[in-house]
């Protein structure tokens, strides 16, 4: 887990000003991206919501630390730091429980996947719903099994469609490291899911 932590920065004052109101708008605009990252890092809805809330308060107060570049990357970097802080305190509180594995939802992935799916789906075919829920549970398990530093890079790239530069800014790592983490993450996931991932999808390249 320690590999996840970004460098603790030198404290240098950046004398720029962005109004908290604008930061609030920016953060709300990218709230789903923030929540999604938090959810995948922390493993449950409750912690994700709390971490995003912390991040929002911090971002509006630290509005003057934004100094150009991708604004959503700046915001997600703050969200991520709040998630990591939460993981750390969780670790302190529950020293005996493994953090990377099974501390997430008690319901088991299949049921929570089904719950996530049901209210949103327009499909009315129960068979299809179950099938989809199983596929989702399988993907969720495979993603959760990834080392967190690979998982977060992959989520930002594949789900949020961040550029390499934006991912580098969020994770505070060089672009070269982004590339190698993405490559490892994709290779691991491909291996976990076997050839099934490819065969389930019709593609026209």
């Amino acid at each position: 887990m320690s590999r996840l932590r970004g460098p603790i920065g030198r404290c240098r004052r950046v004398t720029t000003a962005t109004s908290p109101t604008l930061v609030g708008e920016l953060a709300l605009h990218h709230l789903d991206a923030a929540y999604n990252l938090g959810r995948w890092l922390l493993g449950n809805e409750h912690d994700a919501a709390d971490a995003v809330h912390d991040a929002f308060v911090r971002a509006t107060r630290a509005a003057d630390t934004y100094a150009g570049g991708s604004a959503r990357a700046w915001w997600l970097a703050i969200v991520r730091n709040c998630c990591l802080a939460r993981l750390q305190s969780r670790k302190r509180e529950m020293r005996h429980v493994s953090l990377d594995g099974t501390t997430g939802d008690d319901d088991g992935p299949a049921r929570s996947a089904l719950e996530r799916l049901l209210p949103h789906s327009e499909a009315d075919d129960v068979e299809e719903l179950l099938d989809q829920a199983q596929r989702r549970a399988r993907i969720a398990r495979a993603l959760d099994a990834l080392p967190p530093e690979f998982r977060e890079a992959l989520i930002l790239r594949e789900i949020e469609a961040f550029s390499y530069r934006e991912i580098a800014d969020v994770l505070q790592i060089p672009i070269g490291t982004v590339m190698s983490r993405l490559a490892r993450a994709r290779a691991l996931l491909h291996k976990t899911l076997g050839g099934n991932a490819a065969s389930e999808v019709t593609h026209g390249l």
């Binding site: 030198r10 404290c11 703050i78 730091n81």
Partner: peptide, 19 residues
């Protein structure tokens, strides 16, 4: 956390120039 955020923000500007 402000130090964190500042370090993030600094990463954007080449050489950490303050504007």
């Amino acid at each position: 956390w402000l130090a964190h955020a500042a370090s993030i923000a600094l990463a954007f500007g080449a050489g950490g120039m303050a504007v």
